[in-house]
Nucleic acid binder design. Structure first.
Lengths: 190, 190
DNA sequence: CTATAAAGCTAACTACAGTAGCCAATCGTG
DNA sequence: CACGATTGGCTACTGTAGTTAGCTTTATAG
């Protein structure tokens, strides 16, 4: 029997592309094995079962999304940083819908990699808001508001929640515009 | 064999309460049957398999959430309506986390009940914004922004996305405050 | 009081995740 | 180069969940 040359990375990559194609919840070891031209039990030499595979996808997805956002916001601040972040966020989510689902998973408290990847992503958003000079509770609230708005829009869009034929792109830009407007007056706001 | 007196409604209710307890994805026919003190195949006399059960939960959840929001906003308008809606939305989602997950499902285009329930929920939000005098694209964009923000916050909260010990309630109120502020100037905003 | 429809059952099948243990390919070291 | 250890893939099997077929009993309508 000639060897297939699998690695953990190869298995995870195949799972990711499958997730983007058919949705994260439809990723199965049977299909992954078929795609890699291998029998199902062979996967266990590289990945510790389906749950572990989900964890690996989650960590990689969180760090890749964080990376994409961080890269988009280098050298810009305040309103420009929010714009850059928002565009990068939605673009990444639309390009990798299955991986994006994975970023929404609760970080497992006993998995250091999962916790670190989650924290890093939040930190990128937090840093992007530094130009607004917010501190303490103000900064926390603003970070949460920005994350919530971006995630909410992208999630509804991905779930087919915007049935009307109106331009989704423009709706997103207006939401981002509203956020920038509110952030500029954040400390005096309610 | 004495009869258990099941009905479709009884099965769905049990599934809903199970979903709230263990998460929608962990709802299984085995557990439902055990709770109802019945064998698994008996459930098929009332519900057409697991997928159909998910659809039933989805439709009921969407209409119950829509109902709760609509009830909260009777007799109030504009900023007060947004406040009422936002509070009702988050309260319902926290009270029924499993059902809330179900409301996020894509409406199945070939299932009239699913489509109707989804549209009705959007309509409630749309109506609540009528006091702002928005029309056409403005109204669509504002509806989408409000839905996205509320859903995004609640979903992140439910997923354990707010790790910091800061007050989540206050963060939510500030997000809602920011939205009201933007809605008041919606037409002139970017 | 009987005929029929409905409700629940057992038995069986399928699909998938996961485990045990075998055998062959590869790699490191003398 | 050779040979032993390690590793990667395999077959065979188990357990669990969803689903279907078809039987039996209960309830109900006439």
């Amino acid at each position: 029997m000639p060897r297939a040359g699998l690695t953990t990375a190869r298995v995870v990559e195949e799972a990711e592309s499958l997730a983007d194609a058919v949705g994260l919840s439809n990723v199965s070891l049977v299909v992954i094995a078929a795609r890699l031209d291998v029998r199902v039990p062979s996967l266990y030499k590289h990945v510790n079962g389906l749950d572990a595979l989900h964890s690996l996808i989650e960590v990689r997805a969180k760090s890749q999304l964080g990376e994409a956002m961080a890269r988009s916001a280098v050298g810009v601040a305040s309103a420009d940083a929010v714009d850059a972040l928002a565009l990068a966020y939605r673009a990444w989510a639309r390009k990798f819908p299955g991986r994006y689902e994975a970023t929404l998973a609760v970080p497992k408290p006993d998995d250091a990699a999962s916790v670190a990847a989650s924290e890093r992503t939040v930190q990128v958003v937090f840093d992007a808001l530094s130009g607004y000079g917010l501190e303490g509770d103000d900064a926390v609230d603003a970070t949460r508001a920005l994350r919530a708005a971006l995630h909410g829009f992208v999630a509804l869009e991905a779930a087919g929640g915007f049935a009307l034929p109106h331009d989704v792109e423009r709706s997103y830009l207006r939401l981002v515009g509203a956020l920038k407007h509110s952030l500029a007056h954040w400390k005096t706001l309610s």
